[in-house]
Design a protein around this nucleic acid. Structure first.
Lengths: 348, 348
DNA sequence: GTGAAAGCGCTAACAC
DNA sequence: GTGTTAGCGCTTTCAC
């Protein structure tokens, strides 16, 4: 319809394909700047002009290129989420905990108009993982899920880069802004509950390497010492279900009868443990008490239902995003340590 | 150290901060083009020049801006992964299935040098979800996880956009390239197993709306009809654990004794169902047989362990990425329908 | 093997 | 309220 004669005839054919703001501007008979303003929803555009431009954009399914826009505005509208995998390379991302957190993060970020770029990294193979991500120019900020064994590296980066928030454990006097549960307190709650349920010989099931887990273990140890019990026995396992099951079985063979209270580093491990315990003919909670950590959905559906220490993952995700956005806005922010909560079900 | 006198004195202070390729070029005493070539690993650079540039880049922690590079090269190195949420808005991303798939996708994409941009969308609120993502200019291709109730929209888009692969159900003659399990066959396997285990009055637990689930239901229906049994009774629930539990309880109140074989749309639902069944005092598998779908980790840890229909999620992720990359390379690709596998444990 | 120069598509001064 | 213009940081011909 709008076929005018102002255009060069060689343009006639290509005219319907709108590749950029300039094409659209030509169609609308305005300048690229105006199209940009109209599509960005700025006020400084005549209502009729805007309508016309919007109609044209819709008609041609045109959307401004985010890369170009990002380059020009020096912001991308993307937040990076990075999951460092420690020694226990595989599988961790399948862990229900990470995934639940990620789901909530996706929601929160979307709510604020940000996209989420996900990266799994293996720090052992790529010492530069964090700088690389930050320096890529693809993200406006980064959320690190779990400190793994990278506390120091994160500290280093935090010194020169403000747009970062970390899910993990809080250390006295640390530089990086962290959101997480008070793991040590959680460990105390767990041990106290095991003892209250009649246990006297405690064990900690899981990897004590990651700092979060080390804190949980330490918390349990606090209580054992205070109560005059033997030290909590660390039963080291990997985190992936396949290897963990075997390892748990091995531990029971060696220490089986010497343990009557198990604090598992995560619910996943606790659930596995429950299965192994049953296989050994041990009754829960009569012979052995067991308590998990996280309060994942699985905890409600083990048999018997799992007593556990709850972390509020949704609240954590909310806070991570909230703090990050504030930092993006230039605010100074404190770390947030959330209280864990004992959820008493039937295993302890 | 390297303080030379060739530079304008006004540059002396700012010299150490390297913001872009041009800064680095100045430091190295070469042109921006050469730096670009060196850092991109092209062959056409003198070895010594390259080393010098790389050393300088390392020293200053410089990395080329991906947005600028992407804009210029018209490719981003990012693959979009989008999860359309149907009516059952909340929670689905927390579902272990999606999350497992996502984990594998992240691995596969990383392996091929791509980043992953994750987006959850609610098609009901944003009819334009797919075009918007594709048109954003931020991604080189898109993987859609689950067709939800958006089969038609995906078909429409597939007509004009090649760089898309979808996880879901395959329909005769469809246009979009899909990877998924033969859901109907899976449904048949499930029903056959329930019947072989002694069930005669079958029910399907879950939402029959999503096309994948509808196919599973249809498969079960096929078998019921063939065997001359009453039609499979659909027990409709939401997918989120919280609501599902209640709904399941409600169904049992109404139909409790009239059902002796349950095919649950997912393992998650099956696990919930098991708990409810126990609460009702029904024995599994003596009174009621039950079978799930997916073979998620949870299936091994329910009590009794869950019989289920296995989908190979890792293989699926691998194929999704493989097919997408081929399409990116201009290849024509067929859909891939993978065979489900019955995993017999103790609930049927 | 390297430099110069022209953009990728967009936005934000700055004019008018 | 709108047009013009100068880049954002990079890659890639095209010369030499």
């Amino acid at each position: 319809m709008a076929g005018s004669d102002k255009n060069d005839s060689k343009d006639m054919i290509a005219r319907t394909v709108v590749r950029n703001i300039t094409d659209l501007a030509r169609l609308a008979g305005v300048s690229p700047g105006t199209v940009s303003r109209a599509l960005a929803g700025k006020t400084l555009v005549n209502a009729r002009t805007r309508e016309k431009i919007e109609a044209l954009a819709r008609e041609h399914g045109f959307r401004p290129n985010q890369m170009a826009s990002g380059l020009r505005r020096q912001k991308t509208g993307v937040i990076g989420v990075v999951i460092p995998l420690g020694h226990d390379t595989r599988q961790q991302i399948s862990d229900s905990f990470f995934m639940t957190l990620l789901g909530h993060l996706a929601d929160e970020l979307t709510l604020h108009g940000y996209d989420l770029m996900l990266r799994r990294v293996v720090p052992d193979e790529d010492a530069d993982w964090l700088d690389r991500f930050i320096g890529s120019g693809m993200i406006d900020g980064v959320i690190v899920i779990g400190q793994s064994d990278q506390f120091e590296r994160i500290e280093d980066v935090a010194e020169g880069y403000r747009a970062m928030v970390v899910w993990g454990n809080h250390q006295e006097g640390q530089r990086h802004c962290v959101v997480g549960t008070d793991n040590r307190l959680g460990g105390r709650l767990a041990a106290e509950r095991l003892i209250a349920a009649g246990a006297t010989r405690l064990a900690f099931l899981g990897d004590t390497g990651p700092i979060e887990f080390a804190a949980r273990f330490a918390g349990a140890q606090d209580v054992a010492a205070r109560m005059g019990l033997a030290p909590v026995l660390p039963l080291v396992t990997h985190l992936s279900p396949d290897r963990a099951s075997e390892e748990i079985a091995g531990h029971f063979e060696r220490h089986g009868r010497g343990i009557d209270g198990i604090f598992a580093a995560t619910d996943t491990l606790a659930a596995l443990c429950l299965t192994e315990l049953r296989a050994c003919g041990l009754r829960v909670p009569e012979d052995v008490r067991i308590i998990g950590f996280d309060d994942l959905p699985v905890a409600r559906h083990t048999v018997p239902p799992l007593t556990t220490v709850r972390q509020d993952i949704a609240a954590g995700a909310h806070s991570l995003v909230d703090l990050l956005l504030r930092r993006l806005a230039g605010e100074q922010t404190e770390s947030l340590v959330m209280p864990p909560e004992l959820v008493t079900r039937q295993t302890a």
